[in-house]
Write a protein that binds this DNA or RNA. Structure first.
Lengths: 340, 340
DNA sequence: ACAATCAACTAAACCGATTTAGTTTTATAA
DNA sequence: TTATAAAACTAAATCGGTTTAGTTGATTGT
């Protein structure tokens, strides 16, 4: 069964390509194609399993019913879940989504943006490396529809959907404080991402509220690409006698994983000697020994909201929609901090 | 900075679109465009940041430098990792990848295949629902390049890259047997997927080798979409006095997760009362209480091999390449089965 | 001295749609 | 009766590239 094209249908039915195109795009009525002709076209198309070539269609309309999703890394659960929900929601609204991972490389991110524009995507959802302000502003300048998720450029006025990182981490830290922990370490990433900065601020703010002095040596900032090698010394230093930390807040799920692994290797009792809390989680965190108390991000909500905002902007429907959203996270208390 | 098109370059430089196109596609030499003209074109293009419209290019060449990846669910770690590696490898070879999730729905899978074909993908990597034999055979018939991964149709002669499910599960079961367990439950999915069938066969084969009678009531087959609700009764029945099982093999990482969760809820001691092994794993399985012994799948290898085979077929280079691969998995022994 | 060859291009068709600006035929209004 | 409008179409341009089949002018061979 070979491919059928518009032309084929037109020739077989002795009508013009125009008629066929109009009818199959539901513009038959408004263009006064007779019911009878419409029927013939639709039937023939269905019978021969006609589907329009999206490249041709996209080219000629300058549209593609496609949106792009650029994330740091599709392998990371957080982003893969986002991707899953974005795909679902977008598909429901009639859009295909084109994914790509930047691998935290700003240059690659730039290339991806351009490559997606070439492919005529109609809008972008970007979890940016946050080092492409220029590119982002040029999108903005061109009035190209896009939404930043997870990470945004606070200095630029754009649409975004992010989690309240500040309060998320503040809540996590407060939880430890309320349980009587006073020497709280913080293992996070080297700053650069606004989200990471906010998390540090949240940590500091919680300490301040409890009148606890902020000590720089309790904060370990690891490199995104090398944290697995750096975790050992970070933990070792936090545990250094006589000022060993009695708890650690981890800034991402993977830092929590490697951190806990390291604590176990060092035979540190969690939560008795050191309590831990994680910002963001992994599927099995409730099964871990001990089950890890974590700040849960509203992944589905982030994805759905982003798609809503984006499509709304593409289709220009509701101009009153709020295009900057800070979503709440939720502290899921398990056992890694002990109990009262 | 507005977009530059081929035409613009041609006009500015007083050459034909043909010349520009040829030069920018590295066909300048073979078409005897003078070095000087080539230089001018390349410089101008670079300076003005020209990038060809992929839709137009794809349309006119009937190609797109794009391959499609159809998986059941991008949110599942296993597939998201596959996706990550496929993307990486494909990009290295000059291809973009278009992902889509079928959500285990054969109808949707069919639509995705067609939708990807419309988008002129040059090849497909499919982790099929395995209920689209017709569609697959029609791809085969049209000599359209594709590779099945993770799940394949044994009745159809196609390219595939799968894991040795039989031996993977057999090894897992043997491990329990070697540790003295004799009443081994198996929690798996309702058959339908070849991979799932193979796992059951592996389980049975291990029992046979140890001269242990296969009992149907020790095998619980849950529904892919409803296992979370079915797990309770499955576990309850396996634990039923006086024939309680002394160990359980789980057929997928998510069954392991819900299963272990349920065992904990029932206060069953793992591994003392019931040892467990998982086929496939989750990032935090080594941190779980107890760390879960799991059959690890060579995710990266699956992805790379699939891309290699596919691109080789698309570009028709090495006709001797082995296009059917069964990769080995590896048993990672942790503590969920106890020790000798 | 003249055909053949070659270097260095280009015009125009084409990919498969969409869409604009008509055209033809019939019905209606003045 | 004639202009006007409406119904039911269609030809051809267009989207932005690629590619085939030439063209032109200079060089070479005999």
């Amino acid at each position: 069964m070979k491919k059928v094209f518009l032309k084929d249908i037109a020739e077989k039915l002795n009508v013009s390509k125009t008629a066929v195109s109009l009818v199959l795009n539901n513009k038959g009525d408004e263009n006064k194609i007779s019911q009878e002709t419409q029927q013939r076209i639709i039937e023939y198309a269905k019978k021969h399993n006609y589907v329009p070539n999206q490249l041709a269609r996209g080219l000629s309309r300058g549209k593609s019913e496609t949106i792009g999703l650029i994330i740091p890394n599709i392998s990371d659960t957080f982003y893969s879940k986002i991707a899953g929900y974005v795909e679902l929601k977008a598909k429901n609204l009639g859009y295909t989504v084109l994914f790509s991972s930047s691998n935290e490389d700003p240059k690659k991110e730039g290339e991806l943006i351009r490559s997606m524009l070439n492919r005529q995507v109609e809008g972008l959802i970007i979890a940016s490396t946050q080092q492409n302000l220029k590119e982002i502003q040029s999108l903005k300048h061109d009035k190209f529809p896009f939404v930043l998720i997870d990470r945004h450029y606070p200095e630029s006025d754009t649409n975004y959907v992010v989690v309240d990182n500040f309060n998320g981490l503040k809540t996590a830290t407060e939880h430890l404080l309320q349980l009587g922990r006073r020497k709280i370490g913080f293992i996070t990433l080297k700053p650069g991402l606004e989200a990471i900065k906010q998390r540090l601020l949240g940590y500091q703010s919680a300490l301040r509220d409890f009148n606890i002095e902020y000590k720089e040596e309790l904060v370990k900032e690891l490199s995104p690409g090398n944290y697995e090698n750096e975790i050992e010394s970070a933990i070792r230093e936090l545990l250094k006698f006589p000022n060993s930390v009695d708890s650690i807040v981890f800034s991402t799920h993977y830092l929590t994983s490697v951190g806990l692994r390291e604590l176990k290797r060092k035979n540190v009792k969690v939560p008795q000697e050191v309590a831990i809390v994680s910002f963001d989680e992994l599927t099995a965190f409730d099964l871990v020994d001990p089950p890890i108390t974590a700040v849960i991000q509203p992944v589905k909500d982030i994805a759905n909201t982003a798609v809503d905002i984006l499509i709304n902007e593409i289709e220009g429907k509701d101009s009153t929609m709020d295009n900057k959203r800070i979503l709440d996270s939720k502290l899921e208390i398990r056992k890694s901090c002990g109990t009262f």
